[in-house]
Design a protein around this nucleic acid. Structure first.
Lengths: 245, 245
DNA sequence: AAAGTTATTGACGCTCCGTCAAAACTCGAC
DNA sequence: GTCGAGTTTTGACGGAGCGTCAATAACTTT
């Protein structure tokens, strides 16, 4: 049966398209990633391109989806880290930071797709997939927060159920990374070492909630380094990526 | 001299263009705001439109600029609030929250323009203006943070000079508001009362830094209400906008 | 090998941005 | 009042990009 080979060929081509598209997106931005250029990049015409993807936004969302898959992978690996709940949520933070630093391009594609106009043009189906990822991602955090509460390390105020804490922590981190995009602006404001600041501020935030053990009682830089060596040894072979003592 | 009247006429028309453009932007999004539609909305042709604005992005940045002006106004008014430094930074938070709730449309235009692709197409001049606003905005926060340090209410760690604290607080808030844009997603995650959560979480964050007086020592909801009645009486005539007891 | 089926192509229609030569208008001089 | 130089306005047009589809090529079955 030829259809097996055909199936595989289609898959292969889809990957090739995404590869070319991602390259264009990073080099020339959203507007520079044109369907004609993608078609020129692969060895097929635009018509064939449209047999794989319904629209430009569809291509874009596929790229974003693969980026999110990478992030999900990091999160799920980090979630396996053994320790007190607050150490485990710290591991999630490390995962996000590594994702941001190792794959800034992926981070950017997530931001691009997160735009109302673009999102509106994506098929319901893919929108669902994207949403699904977000939910899974927050579910991981929720479980850890709930463990923290269950073990008595954390007492949440009434206004802040576990999903809300996850949302806030996420907002602090993603908001910071997003604002870091404009480097000129950052410099003008006099912000240096922003990545380190985000790392530390997450801990300050958790201290604010009184999540034990507090920073004063525990060395979370050491936890960060442990997460790097135990969970992300390959990714942090370059020492620059590990938190300093 | 006719040129005086002409000057005024040009100003008037510019305002009219922006009004129409903002309407289109809000109703139909970035892609729905076309130059032809704007031209149809005012009583002039596209050519004339292009005598006022160099490009579509130029129109957009003018809209964003006026939005930022509104926010700046709120910030500057809030900065006049009298009290301990932490009360004053709380006032800034109230200002931002009110801006977000009263003018969601303005908030959105700021987000739209904050896009790399769009930003890249704006004239250097307008980019400078936008940057200027950001700097002024952060300068206000910086001063308050520095006062906090000077008065001994706040001891900042080495990794966090005043501008960095401003940046982080800003990121927490703007990041949260940004993530709140997707209401469906928020609901799916189980986050309720997000605005209140953001308000409280900023305080938790400052508690984390040990900025005195701590939440346990001071009623910051009351401070919030005072800011509303003293600084924003007009805007908070509707009681829904004021923090509950 | 012929008929039928599926895959591929790229020219085309449409929309939108930004331009520019031509038309319309203004206003002082005579 | 009218002429004409200067200014403003216009909308048709070029160019670019997205998505389509009739025509063509390739492949499969009989």
């Amino acid at each position: 049966m030829a259809s097996v080979w055909k199936e595989r060929e289609i898959q292969r081509r889809e990957q090739e398209i995404l590869e070319v598209a991602r390259g264009l997106l990073l080099e020339h931005g959203y507007l520079g990633m044109t369907m004609d250029r993608i078609a020129a990049g692969i060895e097929y015409s635009k018509g064939t391109l449209y047999q794989h993807f319904a629209s430009k936004e569809d291509v874009l969302s596929a790229i974003a989806l693969s980026s999110e898959a990478k992030r999900m992978d990091f999160f799920e690996r980090a979630a396996k880290f053994q320790g007190r709940p607050r150490e485990r949520i710290t591991a999630i933070g490390v995962a996000y930071e590594l994702y941001f630093r190792l794959y800034p391009a992926y981070f950017r594609t997530e931001q691009i797709i997160h735009n109302q106009d673009i999102l509106a043009k994506i098929s319901e189906e893919r929108q669902g997939e994207l949403m699904q990822n977000a939910v899974r991602c927050h579910a991981i955090m929720d479980l850890i927060v709930e463990d923290g509460v269950a073990e008595g390390d954390l007492v949440l105020p009434a206004w802040c159920p576990p999903p809300t804490l996850g949302f806030l922590l996420w907002s602090l981190t993603s908001g910071s990374y997003l604002n870091m995009a404009d480097e000129r602006c950052l410099e003008l404001l006099g912000v240096t070492n922003a990545v380190e600041a985000v790392r530390n501020s997450s801990q300050v935030f958790l201290d604010g909630f009184g999540w034990k053990p507090l920073m004063s009682e525990h060395d979370y830089h050491a936890v960060g380094r442990r997460v790097c060596t135990e969970i992300f040894p390959e990714e942090t072979a370059d020492a620059v990526l590990r938190p300093a003592a």
